[in-house]
Structures are given as structure tokens and as C-alpha cells.
Design a binder for these strands. Structure first.
Lengths: 233, 233
DNA sequence: GCAAAAGTGTTGAGAATACACCCATGG
DNA sequence: CCATGGGTGTATTCTCAACACTTTTGC
């Protein structure tokens, strides 16, 4: 029997909104309980002697294999709608655990975190309770269980505000990238097009980009500079 | 014996930073466990069948008698430093409760909320575990237990950002107020003086103020207009 | 009339925006 | 040589801070 009561704090969970970026689209990792046709955000529980932040990082690492990823907490959800023992019971039963009572049937207050990761170098793996984990286009999400849609939208709201300050800490792009790629990230997140010339000027004026002389070759056009984020002091 | 285990969720608490404003100073409500010379933020626990938001409002209402106050959640604190069974035991013992074990000795993850209230019409009352509750100047706080100083500073940080949007929802000023009073609130919160002429223009341009013809009389100078916040639609 | 505080006008600097022009590259 | 995308210049508008001038009030 996994997830022993003694190991975890009851009534507290976290859910993570993991953003990725591919083909000019913003994506999110969603996991599925196949036989139930139920979709949910990857979440988890906090061990008795574990800081909250670490629990969240552990969860991300287990599912994506990524370490050293910056995650930002954005809101804690504590309404009574987040209480559905039936669903939790079915999830456990689908995994072959038939129990009368379980701490996971209780009510949970959940802390929301989000991360931005580089889509390319990730092979997501489902956790012990779910059957699959997939990238979904942000605007084509399946219906999510409980209040998980609300959580996703609140995450995006927080991400959009002060995006400039956040980019540096995040890991959405490869080590070196072109200005165009950076602009596509902005446009995907903000959901609106940016003026190319002004975008470039604004980014450079932030003083967080380093320009590299090496050029990129790919299309039948002028080769763009490559940039990287300056290391934080 | 108060605070029965069955009534409350274990391991989850909230702490509230209640800002008030008086004599051009920003104040905070702090409670004290007298014999222990220990100071703390007013906080509380969540009942088993109670939404988080409601628990927080209940706590504010019990301590200040105020209802219908807007509170904003700003961060959830979950480090292991927030675990000090010795202090909780002494607090209970000072109140005459000698117990071997208690759910309050456990580890807590706490959700931080803040509110801005009108200092004038409040008579704070201590809760069942504390001995007194007092307003303290924000810049003359006593040393606070555990990570409560960090919580206070994070609250102020959140309050300062996008102050314009928040003012409308808050209850820091009387129903009708002068532009000068509003400016003093801003200066107390932001910790820096504002240019009078430009401040006035900026406030009016936000479109959230209603100007009333009635004038205020008080000093030997031109009588200022009174303003109120427009009702939200 | 004078000091104190309130209301409003003017100005200039710097940021943001729109748009235009020229440059490199592959086919 | 032309289509495509990249880099930069410029002119215009907008925002906002600094400061000055005028108005009202009580003494």
C-alpha cells in the first residue's frame, strides 16, 4: 500500500501547473486516470518532515526528471468544493487498492505552484496513481477535475503579470535562443502579438540578455544573433 | 478544553497581518502571551467543514468585531522552521491546559492574509490563548515568534505592489475623506513622500473616486473637497 | 494681509509606439 | 534578383515628474 498515512501531512496538497513551449504554442502537463476519463493537474502531498517547497520540487522531479527548476507559488485554494472522497476512492480502486477509509478521502487545502520548463528535454512519467501524463495545448485542455481549471487560470494570470522580471528565473528556452524565439514565448503567454522592432528594443533595455557573436543558420534570410540570459549575481 | 482536535484540520493554520492607519502612521495588530514575553500575529485554525476564506474572516471578526472586511491572501509558508512544539506547549500551559500531547504541537503550514481596516472604529479583543492585542507602529514591532517577521514583510511587499488597484477594495479610510488623507495613506504604505499635485492628478485619472460638493472645514486654509470610492458594479 | 493648504496649469524629459528603411541569406 | 526575416533609425505620441501660480480660509 503506497502513500502511508504516517508519512504525509493530511489535508494538505499541492498542485503544479507546468508550462512548456513548443511550435509557438503554450502547453501544460496534465495527467489522466484512464479508466475514469478524469484529468487532473500533477499534484502531490507533503511529507511530515519536509518543507513545502521541497515537496513540490520532489514532485516535479519525479514526473519530469528535471532538477533545479524554479517554481513559483501563486495561490492557496481552500474552498469546500475541493472535497470529493468518491473520486479519490475510485482512483485508489483503479490502482487495486480497496480500503474502507483512507487519509486521501479527506478534505484538502492545496497550494498552487507553477513552473516554466524547456519542453524539449523532458520525458514526463506518470506517478503511481495516474495512468498517463501528456502535454496539452493551453487552449485545448480537457475538462479538469474539481477546481483545477480555476487553478490553471489563476496560474496564467500570475505568470502574465510582470513577465519581464520572471523570465530570467525560468527555464522555458534552450540555453541560447534568438530574439524571435523569445518573442514567440511572450506572445504565447500573453496571448497577443508584439511589435517586432519595439519588442527587441524593450528586451535589450532590460539589461538581462547577453548577445553572442555566433550566428545561427537555418533559413534563407539574414542570420540572427543568439542570446542567453545573464547569470544572476 | 478548547480547540478540540475533531473540530479543526491539523497542520494547517492562517496568520493575518491587519494594517490600520492613524496619525500618519501605519500600524499592525500584534498579540502577546504576557508571561512568555512572546509576540505573534493573530492567527487561527480552519474548521473541518469550513472554507479557508471563511476561517480567516471568522478570526478577524472575533478579534476586531469587524465584518465584511476584504482580506487578501498573499503567500503560504511551509518551511520546517515553523515547528516549535515547546512554544505551543507553554502557551497552552499558561492558559491552564496541561496535556501530554496535542494537535497544536504538530507542524503547521500557514496561509498568510492581510487586511486594511479603519483604525478608528475598532476595539481589538484577545483570543482564548493570548493575553492582549495591541496596535504597533509598523517600524517599531517587537520581536515576533517563529517566522512572523518574514510574514509581515512579505505582506507589505504584496500590499505595495499595485496599490492603486487594491485601495478600492479596502477599508482603511472613513466613508468620505480628503485627498490629503488619501495621500497620507499612500505615503505610510509606500514609505516615501508623494508630490501633491501629481498625486492628485493620478488618483483622479484612475476613475475610482467620486467627488462630493460638500466641503470640509477645519483649518485656516482653503476647504478641500471630500471624496469617496465609487461603488463597484 | 498673511500663512497654510488646496486646486490647477505649464513645461520638459524620457518611454512607448508606429512605421520605414536597409541588410544578409538561400533559392 | 527576389522573397524572407533581421537589425536599426526616426518621428510622433504619451506619461509623468517638477515646479509655479492662483484660490480659499482663519486668524
Amino acid at each position: 500500500m503506497p502513500l502511508l498515512q504516517e508519512e504525509y501531512l493530511p489535508n494538505i496538497a499541492y498542485d503544479s501547473v507546468i508550462f512548456g513551449f513548443s511550435k509557438e504554442k503554450l502547453k501544460i502537463l496534465i495527467l489522466e486516470y484512464h479508466n475514469m476519463k478524469t484529468f487532473a493537474l500533477p499534484g502531490g502531498f507533503v511529507k511530515v518532515n519536509e518543507p513545502l517547497d521541497e515537496a513540490v520540487k520532489r514532485g516535479l522531479s519525479e514526473r519530469t526528471g528535471l532538477d533545479e527548476i524554479y517554481m513559483e507559488q501563486f495561490h492557496t485554494f481552500g474552498s469546500m468544493e475541493r472535497f470529493s472522497p468518491q473520486i479519490m476512492r475510485r482512483i485508489l480502486e483503479e490502482q487495486g487498492h480497496f480500503v474502507e477509509d483512507h487519509w486521501m478521502f479527506g478534505r484538502f487545502i492545496t497550494v498552487g505552484y507553477y513552473a516554466l520548463i524547456n519542453y524539449e528535454n523532458v520525458v514526463p512519467t506518470p506517478d503511481e496513481l495516474s495512468d498517463s501524463i501528456e502535454w496539452y495545448d493551453f487552449d485545448k485542455l480537457p475538462p479538469l477535475m474539481m477546481d483545477h481549471s480555476e487553478i490553471v487560470h489563476k496560474a496564467l494570470e500570475h505568470l502574465r503579470s510582470n513577465l519581464d522580471q520572471k523570465l530570467l528565473s525560468f527555464n522555458l528556452l534552450p540555453e541560447r535562443f534568438t530574439m524571435k524565439e523569445l518573442q514567440q514565448v511572450y506572445e504565447a503567454i500573453l496571448g497577443e502579438t508584439q511589435n517586432r522592432a519595439n519588442f527587441q528594443r524593450r528586451m535589450l533595455s532590460l539589461g538581462i540578455l547577453e548577445r553572442h557573436d555566433k550566428l545561427y543558420s537555418g533559413g534563407s534570410h539574414k542570420a540572427p544573433f543568439l542570446y542567453s540570459f545573464k547569470k544572476k549575481k
